[in-house]
Nucleic acid binder design. Structure first.
Lengths: 355, 355
DNA sequence: CGCGAAACTGGAAGCGCTTCCACTTCTCCG
DNA sequence: CGGAGAAGTGGAAGCGCTTCCAGTTTCGCG
């Protein structure tokens, strides 16, 4: 319960040892001007000898800057965070933060308790800024986050309203690429598995896909909602097949759901890509390991993290960075091969040449 | 650059508004005794009306408890953190921390800069305790961490020495299970892909595997080191096959390496499990998606995180928790099926009945 | 040499909260 | 009814660092 036995040296001790005022010592460790060379060196020596490291808490109190930002992942799905997506985001965030002297506070707000803590944190000046991810629909957190005077950067747009700062992937454009790929490779009976309807990514991906199809005059045969998980994808595929027995293309709003769908396609005896071509969304490691390897819309997840962090730092420093939309592209693998360039899979008779 | 326009109400303002001393107000928000019912209520009302939330920095400075712990992941591989393993650890840590009022600071120390920051953090009382993961060999960080007077919990044993507090999975026992499974299912020409030799997990898994084989009198045909990545596993498998063309069983120190090895086995025309049975280590999501699905040693990763956090909290509170070894078990899938219970795969002629 | 500008210096006042301590006021019971 | 101990109270001293401010020196140069 007691704090700590060994006490760290304080700035006063350093000053005393160096024979200067505390003010001067402070100036030296912050390498501010107005300190003579001699004193500077004396302080530096004292710092070295004493092994002094400034107490961040005291600095924070005095400067009113905490030196930390939080990355909050708010969701209902408890397991959602296990999605490698977030790991990748964190790597990006962390890389950007490493260039600064900001610490990263990670907050998983998937339980009521967690959300309370996030809310409290938002009002308590425990951090200098916040990155908020995975907001479901009109999560009140979004509004709360905007009310606080802390800079808040959104990772992915919320369902309603446009926050001042955010970075997102071009979900709509990416989904459109998927539609175009299907059209180009001659698929004419596409279905889609989307995500929860109260999710901006689901909406955007759905929109982009139908849009892409519409432009080519290809009707969307059917659509079902999953929950971004593998099992959800499998179940949605079941429902889809019940209603539309013979689709020839499937687009899912996430790779995980594609993997689940692949499973039910297989058990239903449908071949991929011969009978139905499949395109997912995300292109993380797992997309390469499915059977067959997954064609999928790639989004630059690590960059997303990096840009969020940079944007937040900018906002904290008083600039007003512009929102960012990161590009997506299609990674073609065997589950939905290109018509032209012959893929590794044997020639597929059921797929007529593209438009 | 400037801190923040709107100022939050302070305890003084609360006290004033409630007509009590600051001391009393403080007592109320910490719900300490020695406050009359009347004053308590007055303060509570004032808190509500003002929307007061105590400033954590000031609290930290006064109490000398920061209210945060750090989870440091130290490694050289920049991409290592993307391993879903860590996401799972974090979920566990976070779940445990949620019960307390400690915040989680995440520190990825894979660059020199990152290590500096970790070191600085260790000496600067920026957190109340530290969880340290993925130490390579005799990482100096280990020793540094022990020197600080902050409680430090190790996730996984370091290569040398036994820290005061740690939690680890039973790597050795798990690897032994793999060996026993091979022996039981009649495999007699096993090879292994281990991890970096300066890694405790690699050593322990190697040890357990050879130990298990030795007990059954089965010689280990060959062993190569990977680096826990997929590509490393693929390369190691190449080398292995060059030296020993006909192994009938492969154990890898991680699932990722198993996946890589599966790839080269496939390109070399070797069938899994008919020609060579494969067992990995970890049993995270990806193990279910390989072709064929991967038999693998399961370790309770989330629990590992949870127990680390609990242990750290215990240590911070002044107890002296005992180190923990978490059990591992074998998850049998098609890549190394049970001899007895017929798996989903067709009968495998090349596999004689087990011992 | 003289003088204004520029560079130093360090005392002191905080940053917002906890807690020790010296009192004052109740409570309860013999 | 008296007195001891418990409960309540608030002033004041920090926690360790930054920074304003009011001087004191030093320096360049006409």
């Amino acid at each position: 319960m007691e704090p700590s036995p060994k006490r760290m040296p304080t700035l006063d001790e350093v000053a005393q040892r160096a024979g200067v005022s505390r003010t001067a010592a402070s100036r030296v460790i912050n390498n501010a001007p107005h300190v003579s060379r001699a004193k500077r060196e004396a302080v530096e020596r004292a710092v070295r000898e004493l092994g002094f490291v400034p107490n961040p808490t005291a600095q924070a109190l005095a400067t009113r800057r905490v030196g930390a930002v939080v990355l909050a992942v708010s969701s209902d799905e408890p397991g959602l965070f296990a999605d490698p997506f977030f790991a990748e985001v964190i790597v990006g965030v962390s890389a950007a933060l490493e260039q600064t002297d900001l610490e990263l506070i990670l907050l998983l707000a998937n339980t009521p308790r967690g959300r309370d803590r996030l809310e409290r944190l938002l009002r308590s000046r425990r951090a200098d800024g916040v990155m908020l991810m995975a907001l479901r629909g009109d999560d009140p957190l979004g509004r709360l986050a905007e009310q606080t005077d802390l800079p808040v950067v959104f990772g992915g747009l919320p369902l309603t309203g446009e926050p001042r700062w955010y970075v997102d992937a071009d979900n709509r454009g990416g989904a459109r690429l998927a539609a175009e790929h299907f059209v180009r490779t001659g698929r004419r009976r596409p279905v889609m598995i989307t995500g929860q309807v109260d999710t901006q990514v689901a909406v955007a991906r759905e929109q982009g896909f139908t849009e892409g199809l519409a432009l080519a005059g290809v009707p969307l045969l059917g659509i079902e909602a999953g929950d971004f998980t593998e099992d959800g994808g499998a179940a949605a595929m079941e429902r889809l097949l019940a209603a539309h027995p013979a689709p020839d293309a499937l687009f899912t709003a996430s790779d995980a759901m594609a993997i689940g769908a692949l499973r039910t396609l297989r058990t239903r005896g449908l071949r991929v890509p011969e009978d139905v071509a499949v395109i997912g969304f995300n292109d993380l490691a797992s997309a390469r390991h499915t059977a067959p390897p997954l064609t999928t819309v790639h989004q630059p997840v690590r960059s997303l993290g990096r840009e969020m962090a940079r944007m937040l730092v900018g906002a904290i420093e008083g600039h007003d960075p512009s929102p960012l939309i990161l590009p997506t592209r299609l990674t073609v693998r065997e589950s939905a091969p290109d018509a032209s360039a012959g893929p590794i899979v044997p020639t597929v008779p059921t797929v007529p040449t593209g438009v």
